[in-house]
């Protein structure tokens, strides 16, 4: 076995894979959040629908998206492999185990939090990704008068829609797009789904506070000079700002739309 393979199959190497895929998923979240902030724009979803088209048709983004799917699968798979491995390391458990005295709940239950997130990702993709890619979303046409900048919105039938189009005609900018925005607005009228999304974001918060911090440890970075920055980012960016901003989306559509 080459030393590279040997390194990756060791307990340290398996954690390295968890750390790298985990950090990549963290980086993705930032991009995903910035894009999804278009949902809060009051423009009948034009900015969001344009963004959805861009993300699914721009080649470099598409390439990265395959890396993303792979990361999710590898992260979950290695979590499973490590869990089984770690269980084997203690075949007979303790009758009395005071884990709460020496560690946080989330650090001991990353598997539970991660499973919630995996179910969430499956639900999330079935709701939006699958529907968008299989033409199960409505279509829309935006006509913006280039002089007055007023926009007219018309819903299109499936027969009228061929593909995403953007052209200028008679002093009007015409955009025809798949209306993912409407699908989002529709999906978030379901209170159970909204509650699940909010719960999943709470799970994500705890998962990422521990995960983001621990990834650096697994990579071998832990020094008092820079670790406060990592702690700060883990708590404020990944533990508070990102989950709250994401949770605000279903709540916004449920209560305000």
């Amino acid at each position: 076995m080459s030393s590279f393979n040997q390194a990756l199959t060791s307990t340290l190497g398996k954690k390295l894979i968890m750390a790298l895929t985990g950090l990549f998923l963290c980086a993705f979240l930032i991009v995903h959040l910035i894009g999804n902030l278009q949902l809060f724009k009051d423009d009948a979803g034009k900015a969001f629908n344009d963004y959805a088209y861009f993300m699914t048709h721009f080649t470099p983004i598409k390439a990265v998206s395959y890396l993303l799917y792979a990361s999710i699968i590898i992260h979950a798979l290695y979590a499973l492999i490590l869990t089984v491995y770690n269980r084997k390391a203690r075949p007979i458990g303790y009758a009395s185990f005071a884990g709460d005295k020496n560690s946080t709940w989330s650090s001991r239950n990353m598997g539970i939090l991660g499973t919630v997130l995996l179910v969430f990702i499956a639900t999330h993709m079935a709701n939006f990704w699958w529907k968008f890619h299989n033409d199960e979303v409505p279509y829309i046409e935006y006509r913006t008068d280039l002089n007055t900048l007023e926009t007219q919105v018309t819903e299109l039938n499936a027969s009228e829609f061929t593909d995403y189009q953007n052209f200028t005609q008679d002093g009007q900018e015409v955009t025809r797009a798949r209306d993912l925005y409407k699908q989002v607005a529709y999906a978030f009228q379901n209170p159970i789904l909204v509650a699940f999304y909010v719960l999943a974001m709470a799970a994500m918060s705890f998962h990422l506070i521990h995960g983001f911090n621990s990834a650096f440890q697994s990579l071998g970075f832990n020094h008092r000079k820079y670790i406060p920055i990592v702690r700060f980012l883990a708590l404020w960016v990944f533990g508070i700002i990102i989950p709250i901003a994401f949770a605000a989306m279903p709540l916004y559509f449920f209560f305000c739309k």
Partner: peptide, 27 residues
């Protein structure tokens, strides 16, 4: 022996206070 999940229980329970930074160094 199992893998590390960074629960920090080891550091909390170590009778002589060995630090978790050692594990990062080992990695």
């Amino acid at each position: 022996f199992g893998a590390c999940t960074v629960t920090k229980a080891c550091e909390a329970e170590c009778p002589v206070g060995i630090k978790l930074t050692n594990i990062a160094r080992m990695n």
